[in-house]
């Protein structure tokens, strides 16, 4: 989907975005965007990618990934109900725009 240009000197691939690419990503992210926005967003993404692409200069051979900076691993707890953090039904529904008989109302997704 992405137009990929190859810089032969470094063999690093740089991604550039077209409004069509933006439309596809917007669909994946479930973000409504207008035609005018797509163009503007594509330009913005291309300038951000230039900054990100600086990372290609760094040699990361044999380097492991970091997901957790302070080194915690496998933090478990007992599988028990904690009533202290439970919400009542009315609390859970208190911020919903549309409710019906104690349920959240959602948009219809299947055709009749």
């Amino acid at each position: 989907m992405h137009r990929v240009s190859t810089d032969m000197t470094s063999m690093k691939k740089t991604v550039t975005f077209t409004p069509k690419d933006v439309k596809h990503i917007a669909k994946l992210a479930n973000i409504p965007v207008t035609d005018g926005e797509e163009k503007k967003l594509a330009t913005g993404f291309n300038s951000v990618m230039k900054v990100i692409d600086q990372l290609n200069q760094v040699d990361v051979t044999n380097v492991e990934l970091t997901h957790q900076v302070t080194g915690l691993t496998n933090v478990f707890r007992e599988d028990e109900v904690d009533e202290e953090r439970m919400l009542t039904q009315s609390q859970a529904l208190s911020n919903a725009k549309h409710t019906h008989n104690g349920y959240f109302v959602v948009d219809q997704i299947l055709e009749k």
Binding site: V63, L65, T66, H67
Partner: peptide, 9 residues
């Protein structure tokens, strides 16, 4: 993944 590796550095 690449960014998380540079983060390790």
């Amino acid at each position: 993944v690449n960014a998380q590796k540079v983060r390790s550095l």
